[in-house]
Amino acid sequence: MKWTIYLLSLVCFVSCTEIKTKKNSQVTPVSYIKDTPTLDGRPIENYWNLLEWQPIDQNWIGGPFDHNDYNGKYKMAWNEDGLYLLLEIVDDTILDQTEDPLKLWWNDDCVIVYVDEDNSGGQHRFNHNAFTYHVALDGNVVDLGVNEKPTLYNDHIISKHQTEGNTTYWEMHIKIYPSLYNDEPNIKPVILTADKRIGFAVAYADNDNSEERENLIGSVFVPGENKNAGWIDANVFGTLQLVK
């Protein structure tokens, strides 16, 4: 009788503590490219024309905005060395008011790239179960490190942008690091393969001329009241499906 009670208790414990993984929500197929883009903010390579635009239109922070003030979309591709991201951002005012890249980096106009290498979801505020890369206009890339301090990850994302009128084109190469990454230089990026699924979202922080950002507009729908949950919770990311 005691063993029966013990086994029932063990089954209950295992079922109650079962690890839950993130669902493959808002799945976006990403096509393979053999040739690496020239990162210059000028999307002149032919394969960019073959890929579909995806919208960046979910208002996570701030009030309503006019599409003359902001409009954004992106395209993606991949090869073994990482993801390649093209953005077209229409913004009538581009602001870079904080010179120190490790201070108030979220309040300047910037692109935010959310990456969860194994699409597992979960919390990532002070660990690298997932990343929230803030890509600044000067090319600096900031996220919180495992030491709980803002840290530069300029070797994780290489970016270039060009602005013509109110339209800015960004091109980025995003290296994908595993969740065991702990800010040590000996951990290498993952070699990508077909059928891999990666948690992902991209957002644009828009500040026309204020002390704080006025809007944060993202690429995925986030349920609930806290639309800006992605910086600590990878469960709200979408899912990239690498196809070849």
Rank of each mutant, 00 (worst) to 15 (best):
V141Q: 00
I5A: 07
G224Y: 13
K244N: 13
Y74C: 08
Y169P: 00
N71Y: 08
G165P: 08
E88M: 09
S210C: 07
V90Y: 10
L180H: 10
N147V: 07
R42D: 04
D91T: 13
N71G: 06
K227W: 09
D81A: 12
K73L: 06
S15D: 12
I94N: 06
D155Q: 10
F200I: 05
S179A: 13
P55R: 03
V27F: 03
G145D: 02
N235V: 06
V236L: 10
V190S: 09
N228H: 14
G165C: 11
A205P: 05
Q123G: 07
I187K: 10
D143Q: 06
F13W: 14
D66I: 04
E212G: 09
E214R: 08
P101H: 08
I112S: 11
V113H: 10
K23P: 01
G72E: 01
I19Q: 15
L7P: 02
N129Q: 15
P101D: 05
A234Q: 05
K103V: 14
K103Y: 13
Y114M: 10
Y6I: 15
A194W: 09
A205F: 11
D206A: 10
Q54F: 04
E52W: 01
S15N: 15
D57K: 02
S179G: 09
D108V: 08
W231T: 04
T163Q: 15
W231P: 01
F221D: 08
V141Y: 00
H124V: 11
D155I: 00
G62N: 04
G62L: 01
